Structures are given as C-alpha cells and as structure tokens.
Simulated assay, not measured.
Amino acid sequence: MTTGSSNVIDDPSKTPDGTPTPSATLGGEQKRSIEQIMLLIFIVVPFLAVLAAVPLAWGWGVSWLDIGLLVFMYFLGCHGITIGFHRYFTHGSFKAKRPLRIALAIAGSMAVEGPLVRWVADHRKHHKFSDADGDPHSPWRFGETLPALMKGLWWAHIAWMFDEEQTSQEKYAPDLIKDPALRAISRQFVYWTILSLALPPLVGGLVTMSWWGAFTAFLWGSLVRVALLHHVTWSINSICHAVGKRPFKSRDRSGNVWWLAILSCGESWHNLHHADPTSARHGVMRGQLDSSARFIRWFEMLGWAYDVRWPSRSRIDSRRNTGEDGSRRGKATAEAA
C-alpha cells in the first residue's frame, strides 16, 4: 500500500535538494504549556457554546442569518481542510495554480485545526504508521479489548493533541517549509483564527445593526461551527479507524462510515483513502457523496487545478478487498464526480 506521501525525507535538517531547512514554522516539535492551554480553551469553549445554544435556540435565539453563517463558515473551513490541507498539501492528489494554492491554505487555516505545516506533518506520519506503533492517533494504541478501545477512541479523538512530543515538521513536511508563502500562512495561524471567529459577528452585527445580532452570529457562526467541525474531523481519526465497512484492501483498520459523509465533505469514505491515499476522490462507489471531489472537478474545469489523480475503474478494482469482507460491495465508478 502507498503511504500517501513522497515528501518524507530521512534527514530532517535538510530539504530534498540537500539544502538546510528554513527556520521552524509556528509550533515546533515540543508543545509548550501555553499551546496546551490554548488548545484546551478551543476545545472546551466551543463545546460549552453548543450546550448554551440548545436552550437559546428553543427560545428563538437563532435566526436564518445565524444558520446561514454557520453553514457557510462550516463548509468553507471543512473544504479548506479536506481539499487543501488533506488531499492537496498532504497527498498531492492534484496540482494547483498559485492563487488556488494560497486560497486553500487560508481556508484550511480558518477551520481552526492548527497551523498548516503541523497539520500536514501529523497526517503524513499517520499514514506512514497507520494503526501501528508511531501513529499519532490510532484508536488501537492501547489494545483490542473493549476498555482498551474506549481509551483508544478518546486518545484518537482528542487526547493525542495534548501529547508534548510533536511530529518533526522538517522530516514530514519539508516541501511546505521551503515555500515562503505557505510558511508565512502557517506562522500566521493565530491571525487566521481571529479572522475566522470575527467574520460571523461582524456580518451579523452589520446586517441586523444590533449587538444581539452580532452575539448570536458569534455563538452559532463562530463557536458552534468550530465545535461541530472539530468533532467531525476528529471522528475521522477515531470512529473511521474503529468501525465501518472495508471493501478495499488497506494495511490498517480504516473503514467507511456513511453517516459522516456529508458533514465530513467526503472524508468518511476512509477505507478507499487508505487503500489509495493519493486519489482525489474518496467516495468511489455508487451513491457515495464526496463534495470535496466535486469542487476539485470544478477547479479542474476552470483551469485552476490540473494533473488530478482521478481513480480509474481498473485502479479501483485492483484495490478491492476479497478477504474477510468477502463480497465486492456495490459498483464502483470511474467517474471523478
């Protein structure tokens, strides 16, 4: 199986062409206490906002503007992660013109899931050691008994992010570190976070011309949106490596979880992704919705993306699992979207 990245090098002090790597990006290889505190805040506060939003919504504390801002900001950040951070920057599923490259880096940063370079380094390491020793967030880390799996799911979903030892960015993402623009965007993660959280209340306040409109827009379009997107993304690490159908051959326990497909923008068709990491489309079976692949197709049609690695029928069939799952489920399609 392909590990999903040809950009990992053995010498973390040098780039692929042999030159020394530039200075580290935001967030080095040791997570400092201040970073752990901020991480805790960004996990707890949005979650508390969700709890507060439920009774508020019951009392008509939500408007169509709030819902619109939540949906727009959610899918902007979600596709920034799935298309940008994941399929493009991590796996090279397609090539992008410079404006699209920068836009994807910014959109992904606005998902508030960490700096670009760190995110990519972590994910490339995950693919190298998927569900084995060295995987940063495998739910099978503590064993296969039910108590061990429960502990592992908590680790894979949230706890792993508090581990002080971080993935070497110089080793796993040297190509991104070499790019001055991407390095700058990664370093400016705090500013993209502020922008991401400030846009909904700014729009809400201006449209309603009221502080209440700004507050409810911040609650729904910023905090609730961030909480929802975080837990959906983390569920790919935890749930999709513990349960789900496995119609394709992979060396790990990645599975397809259909009920996460829309909210994850196609990422929960995780079994095919681990069977063929560089594929631009993850939902290759009939009826498997993959909005990220649809956007990549549009980018290709507009000339913004090229050399897209669409899965052919023969490539899909070659990865079919005829082992423990036995039958070949469904009918794959060679269409990219």
Score class of each variant (00 low, 15 high):
residue 222 S to P: 01
residue 168 S to L: 11
residue 288 Q to E: 15
residue 193 T to D: 05
residue 278 T to G: 07
residue 328 R to Y: 12
residue 110 M to W: 01
residue 332 A to P: 05
residue 3 T to Q: 15
residue 247 P to W: 02
residue 182 L to S: 13
residue 266 G to Y: 03
residue 83 I to G: 02
residue 166 Q to H: 07
residue 142 F to G: 06
residue 65 L to A: 12
residue 282 H to L: 10
residue 118 R to T: 09
residue 254 S to C: 03
residue 257 V to F: 08
residue 38 M to T: 08
residue 258 W to E: 01
residue 53 A to D: 04
residue 332 A to E: 02
residue 238 S to K: 10
residue 174 P to C: 13
residue 173 A to P: 06
residue 336 A to T: 01
residue 204 G to F: 05
residue 205 G to E: 03
residue 50 V to Y: 09
residue 179 D to T: 08
residue 157 H to V: 01
residue 125 K to I: 00
residue 107 A to D: 00
residue 320 R to N: 09
residue 252 D to F: 04
residue 54 V to W: 10
residue 100 L to D: 04
residue 68 G to R: 11
residue 79 H to M: 06
residue 52 A to S: 06
residue 190 V to M: 15
residue 143 G to P: 03
residue 325 D to T: 06
residue 295 F to W: 11
residue 190 V to S: 11
residue 333 T to I: 14
residue 95 K to C: 10
residue 326 G to M: 08
residue 322 T to Y: 15
residue 103 A to G: 08
residue 192 W to N: 07
residue 251 R to D: 11
residue 287 G to L: 14
residue 192 W to R: 01
residue 125 K to M: 13
residue 276 D to M: 12
residue 128 K to I: 09
residue 315 R to W: 14
residue 153 L to M: 15
residue 7 N to F: 10
residue 263 L to N: 00
residue 209 M to V: 13
residue 73 M to V: 01
residue 337 A to S: 11
residue 219 L to D: 05
residue 319 R to V: 00
residue 279 S to P: 07
residue 276 D to V: 08
residue 228 L to K: 02
residue 330 G to W: 10
residue 250 S to G: 12
residue 216 T to G: 02
residue 44 V to R: 13
residue 176 L to K: 06
residue 53 A to I: 02
residue 67 I to Q: 00
residue 93 S to I: 02
residue 250 S to W: 00
residue 274 H to T: 07
residue 144 E to M: 09
residue 9 I to F: 09
residue 74 Y to W: 06
residue 229 L to E: 05
residue 44 V to F: 12
residue 177 I to A: 09
residue 104 L to V: 04
residue 173 A to F: 11
residue 136 P to G: 07
residue 152 G to S: 11
residue 46 P to C: 13
residue 180 P to F: 09
residue 202 L to C: 07
residue 27 G to A: 07
residue 158 I to S: 01
residue 82 T to K: 01
residue 3 T to R: 15
